[in-house]
Simulated scan of single mutants.
Amino acid sequence: MTLSLDTFTPPEVVELITRAGVVKGNMPLQKIFLSSASGGSLLAFACGSLLSTATAPWFQENAPGLIRTVSSMVFPYGLCMIILTGVDLCTSSFLYTTVAALQRRLPWWKMLMHWFITFWGNLAGSLFVVAIIYGYGEVFATEPYKAQVIKFATIKQVKPDFHHIFLRGIGCNWLVCLACYFGLQGRDLTSKVVGIWWPIYAFTSLSLEHVVANMTFIPTAIWLGAPDISVGLYIWKGIIPALIGNIVGAVLFGALYYWYMYGRTETPALEAPPEKGLDGDV
């Protein structure tokens, strides 16, 4: 009995990644910004759900691994919303546009421009949700939610050293690129969602560093008055090492690997229309 899987082959997936990078890299600048602002906002909602689910004082004291597992299982819905609506995150741009540039179908300057705009768009969208929904909406203003938000951010920002966050950022976007890959490999909605879910669960359960997720976690704690976290500390340890690590993880273990393994061959003839599966981002 032969098991048949209705998926794209690895060379076909790399072709889809390339086409997605070409499309995204050639978008008008204002559309890139709006798309990435939407992406940051959607991820911010998932970050809020993770913080809310993790607010379980008894479990935090007696079974911290269990409550981390449960909250990590919730978080990937944000990335699924992002993929299914076709919006942008800088962390997925590091994969898509780099592969397109390696395939010589997107200029390198457009790749870097897409990175730059998506980063600031993600930040704008994340801070909008943090201020308007979580902040003025007082979603986490009461206990024990307030204490959990501050504790979570303190553990992520104050205790680790710069190089710890950098290394965790590499691992995080290595897994994010795998989620992007699976999101394009599946031909149907269920396959895409399941494929995306597990790599994202992995990086969340391991408490790895995602620069866009930090755009919600840390500013929310600052808004609530976290005593040990300042804006300067957030920039120094929440943005810079996580961003550099995410770039290294995506380029080295995502884009370069998939391009070298599957992208330097003849362009595969896809059975599906070129538009199918191109709109996903993580």
Rank of each mutant, 00 (worst) to 15 (best):
C47G: 07
G48F: 15
P57N: 12
M81D: 14
S38W: 13
I67G: 10
S35C: 02
W58Y: 02
R68C: 00
L43K: 08
L89G: 01
W58Q: 04
L84D: 07
P64Q: 05
F75N: 00
V87G: 02
S71F: 11
E61M: 08
I67Q: 15
M73E: 13
F75K: 00
G78A: 04
P64W: 12
L50G: 00
L42E: 06
D88H: 11
F59L: 13
P76D: 04
G86A: 07
L66V: 15
L89T: 07
L84A: 06
T55E: 06
F45V: 10
W58D: 03
Q60E: 14
C90D: 00
V74A: 09
V74G: 03
P57L: 08
A63M: 09
L89Q: 00
G65C: 08
G40P: 07
A37C: 10
N62K: 05
V70S: 02
E61C: 12
S72L: 13
M81K: 13
G48E: 10
N62E: 05
S35V: 02
A56V: 09
M81I: 14
S72D: 02
M81T: 13
L42W: 11
I83M: 12
S41N: 08
T85L: 10
A46D: 06
A56P: 15
L51W: 02
P76I: 09
F59N: 07
P64S: 06
S71Q: 12
A54C: 13
A46P: 03
A56G: 08
I67M: 05
F75C: 15
T85R: 15
V74H: 02
L66H: 01
T69S: 13
L50K: 00
L79C: 03
R68F: 10
N62C: 14
G40R: 05
F75Y: 10
L79G: 07
L43Q: 09
S52I: 08
F75S: 01
G48S: 13
M81V: 15
A63C: 04
S41Y: 02
A54F: 10
G65I: 04
E61R: 09
A56I: 08
L79N: 01
A46E: 15
F75P: 01
Q60A: 10
C80N: 04
L43Y: 14
I83R: 02
A54E: 05
G39P: 14
D88M: 13
G40F: 04
C80G: 08
F59S: 04
L50H: 04
L42S: 01
L50W: 10
I83P: 13
L42Y: 10
C47T: 03
G39V: 12
F59Y: 04
E61D: 12
V87H: 14
C90G: 00
T55K: 11
T55L: 08
G65F: 07
S36G: 11
W58H: 08
F75T: 12
A44N: 12
S71G: 09
G86D: 10
F45Q: 15
G65N: 10
A44E: 05
L89D: 00
L79M: 10
V70R: 00
V87D: 11
G48D: 15
L66I: 11
S71D: 11
L42H: 12
D88L: 12
S38C: 14
G40C: 06
